[in-house]
């Protein structure tokens, strides 16, 4: 009579698929994971405590380092809170520019996400293509604020400075090229049989669970809940812009991946509108 027993497997904090420093202790039965215990805190930097001893302006650079792939969005979150506290009205011009950079940053974020997803599945090519386009966006950001990742660009009351020379041409070129690139990725991934085998029906998150756990963003919309804070509780100038919240009902990893792909198109569309309105001759203030 064969005897089986469960065993513990430690994953991380330095492991190729943790992408950073995250540690799991898995309880395994053969190849099946029975239980996961998460051990957190390897990247605890005490940012809240630091914030206590900084002025509002001094703290903006720290927000870049919270989620270091989408620094612009973090900047905005903090800045918005400060503006609401102080009752500052931001000129429309600046709001459009903010929306433009935030949507580009969303594209960067999704590119890195999809690339890492495919890297974990074993296909190393996608992340390199994703980083190629990411580099173009970072070039744009660098011409705006001088940094590639830690921008410190969105400030209370507006942005750090207006656009430099030649920015609009570069931005338009990017907006023109990017849909074709996303089509390339879709061609590489979407109809791949092995991708379907690995991602369909994996990581199921039912709509009820998603809401109860407080999941937001593409994860929530991949579970079939059509909730986008840009649409349902609009901030900045999102209510003037035309876009749709991308939703998929399948609740699995593949659905979340498709939501991200669709959102990149939407972000491009939003960015294009923002760029157009920012330099519209009738725009006042």
């Amino acid at each position: 009579m064969a005897r089986t027993e469960e065993y513990q497997l430690n994953v991380g904090p330095v492991h190729p698929s943790t992408h950073g420093v995250l540690r799991f202790v898995l309880t395994m039965d053969g190849e099946t994971i029975k239980d996961t215990e998460m051990v957190l805190g390897q990247l605890h930097r005490g940012i809240e405590k630091i914030a206590e001893s900084r002025s509002y302006l001094q703290f903006i650079p720290y927000t870049d380092r919270l989620d270091y792939i989408s620094g612009m969005t973090n900047n905005y979150g903090f800045t918005k809170a400060v503006e609401d506290l102080a009752g500052i009205t931001v000129p429309k011009k600046a709001e459009y520019l903010r929306v433009f950079v935030m949507e580009l940053n969303r594209i960067v974020n999704h590119l890195v996400c999809i690339g890492s997803l495919l890297l974990d599945l074993g296909a190393a090519t996608m992340i390199i293509y994703g980083f190629r386009e990411r580099h173009k966006v970072l070039d744009l950001f660098e011409s705006l604020c001088g940094a590639r990742m830690t921008f410190n660009y969105i400030r209370p009351g507006g942005v750090r400075g207006d656009i430099p020379e030649g920015f609009i041409d570069n931005a338009k070129e990017f907006l023109r090229d990017m849909p074709k690139r996303i089509g390339d990725y879709a061609q590489l991934i979407n109809d791949n049989e092995i991708v379907h085998m690995r991602m369909k029906g994996v990581g199921m998150l039912s709509p009820e669970d998603a809401i109860n756990y407080g999941v937001t963003g593409p994860m929530l919309r991949g579970s079939g809940v059509s909730y986008d804070i840009r649409k349902d509780d609009p901030y900045s100038v999102y209510e003037e812009l035309d876009f749709k919240a991308c939703t998929r009902p399948e609740c699995d990893t593949y659905a979340r991946y498709i939501v991200r792909m669709d959102e990149m198109y939407e972000s491009l569309y939003i960015a294009e509108q923002a760029l157009k309105r920012r330099w519209h001759p009738t725009l006042q203030g």
């Binding site: 296909a123 090519t125 092995i194 085998m197």
Partner: peptide, 11 residues
């Protein structure tokens, strides 16, 4: 290798 991902062990 440059194109497709890995298949899972049970598959």
């Amino acid at each position: 290798r440059a194109t497709v991902p890995r298949v899972r062990v049970d598959q």
